[in-house]
């Protein structure tokens, strides 16, 4: 349990750091990927809805604190993303990378549409078509690419957790 919390904390901190500093320089067509979504999707698919929701919540919370205008907005989004994806994880063959890529795409689009509607549409007028074409779809594509790498890391973490779990059961 301890090692799990430690690993997740490190991952979330690493993601915020990259997302807020280095990624600024790797923007393609002015859009950068959102590793938070990819991470939540990977963990939720591999570890189920409880861990998905918890990781989603804390990843969202840290994003809120880093840059949110409101505290709690991204946390709730992350919580529900992790919860929903964690709930489908038993029904599919999740070792397949294509499944992960597919879900990353779907969840990025859903997540960013929610951010756009609740975060912007109520404050100012927003061109939804523009946002969809120039930000959301592009970001979803980058996220799919990033999903490959993040998923590999997540699978390794998963093996470690399972190994730690089974070694504990011996005693």
């Amino acid at each position: 349990m301890k090692i799990k919390i430690f690993a997740y904390t490190i991952c979330i901190f690493a993601i915020i750091l990259m997302q807020s500093t280095v990624f600024e320089y790797v923007r393609i067509y002015n859009v950068k990927p959102n590793l938070f979504i990819v991470f939540i999707v990977s963990i939720a698919l591999l570890r189920g809805n409880v861990e998905g929701a918890v990781v989603g919540f804390f990843a969202g919370l840290s994003q809120d604190i880093m840059s949110g205008k409101l505290l709690g907005f991204y946390s709730l989004l992350g919580l529900y993303l992790g919860l929903l994806l964690g709930s489908v994880n038993k029904r599919l063959y999740r070792e397949n990378i294509l499944v992960v890529i597919f879900f990353t795409f779907i969840s990025t689009v859903a997540y960013e549409v929610v951010v756009c509607v609740f975060g912007l549409l109520f404050i100012t007028e927003v061109d939804i078509v523009y946002a969809m074409k120039n930000i959301i779809l592009l970001e979803a594509l980058y996220n799919c690419l990033a999903a490959i790498f993040i998923y590999i890391i997540a699978v390794k973490l998963n093996h470690k957790f399972e190994a730690a779990n089974s070694s504990k059961r011996k005693y």
Partner: peptide, 14 residues
């Protein structure tokens, strides 16, 4: 300036 917005929507920095 130590950090930019992690997302793609807002123009917030730290």
């Amino acid at each position: 300036v130590i950090a930019k917005d992690p997302g793609n929507w807002f123009g917030i920095f730290r």
